[in-house]
């Protein structure tokens, strides 16, 4: 079982080796987008970009410069051309820093670092928050390549905290802090005693693009210990004396599998992107897979 970590050792995320790996990931993104430094991320909103998106009936107040006169000449109708809006998006990184993540926090922080790095280098606005029984800011909304080290340092040094993970409260706090819609990436094990449904529902209801990355360890999926045990919750410290036999171990593995499946189904139902990874996998491979699925990497 990996050693529980309160925070990462200095240099783990700010070292040259790690940053080189982040840069490699970013280059993959650049190669596909091939754009300038201006808000490379495509939006679903229609606006004043250069890429044609659709026609719309002219209404009072619309910019008459957008009227397609050729269509008017042929059909005697006033329509305007709509273009894709190319805007600077806001990326909200919600990183689970509860104590249940202690054993896999390195993986979770690296994932957050990679996404944050790409976002800042794409001139997106990036905000990063630690999540447990409350939402703690690690990096307030910022933009620009120059903030990369700030992000990495804060991710590196942020301690695990809290006595529980209250996802709903954290989402409500995020809602109160930011009215602007954006991309919300939740990096967590999603082992929330109160459940994850309400939080995900609220996030998607706010109009955010939401992506859930579930980070698990082998110990989360199955337990090998048998006999008389005093189970202790790493977050709340709550204890329970139990006798674990093979039957209980099987039941636990089934319960975890059911929980994870429920998360996957919930994400699919709400149009939330979902990725599950083990803490033993390489973070850059996970990021590359996510980007490939989103068409952002070759």
């Amino acid at each position: 079982m990996p050693e529980p970590l309160e925070s990462l050792p200095p240099g783990e995320l700010t070292g040259a080796g790690f940053i080189r790996r982040l840069e490699t990931l970013f280059l993959l993104v650049r190669r596909v987008l091939g754009g300038s430094m201006q808000a490379d991320r495509k939006s679903t909103r229609k606006g004043t970009g250069i890429t044609f998106a659709d026609y719309a009936e002219y209404r009072m107040g619309d910019d008459y410069r957008a009227i397609d006169w050729r269509v008017y000449a042929r059909f005697d109708e006033l329509v305007i051309k709509l273009f894709e809006l190319e805007e600077d998006a806001t990326v909200y990184l919600l990183l689970d820093l509860s104590r249940s993540m202690q054993t896999k926090t390195a993986m979770a922080r690296k994932l957050a670092a990679a996404l944050g790095y790409i976002g800042l280098n794409c001139q997106d606005r990036v905000a990063c928050y630690g999540m447990a029984d409350e939402l703690r800011p690690l990096l307030e909304v910022t933009r620009g390549r120059g903030k990369v080290l700030t992000l990495l340092r804060s991710l590196e040094s942020a301690p695990c905290f809290g006595k529980d993970t209250d996802f709903s409260t954290c989402v409500r706090t995020l809602e109160a802090r930011h009215r602007k819609k954006g991309l919300v990436v939740v990096i967590s094990d999603f082992f929330y005693p109160a459940g994850f449904e309400e939080g995900l529902k609220r996030l998607s209801g706010l109009g955010h693009d939401v992506h859930a990355i579930q980070v698990l360890s082998e110990e989360d999926l199955k337990c090998e210990r048998k006999g008389d045990l005093e189970l202790e919750c790493v977050e709340s410290g709550k204890r329970r004396k139990v006798t674990v036999t093979s039957r209980e171990l099987d039941a636990y593995a089934a319960a975890v599998a059911e929980w994870n499946e429920k998360l996957r189904v919930e994400c699919a139902r709400r149009g939330i992107g979902f990725t599950r990874t083990l803490d033993t996998e390489a973070f850059d491979e996970v990021i590359r897979a996510i980007l490939q699925r989103g068409g952002l990497a070759a």
């Binding site: 337990c223 008389d228 919750c233």
Partner: peptide
């Protein structure tokens, strides 16, 4: 001797669900 060994778990609520049954 019979004092049980302490075992930290990340998802106690899942264990509790099992033992409630």
């Amino acid at each position: 001797k019979v004092r049980p060994r302490r075992f930290p778990v990340n998802a106690l609520f899942l264990w509790e669900k099992i033992f409630q049954e």
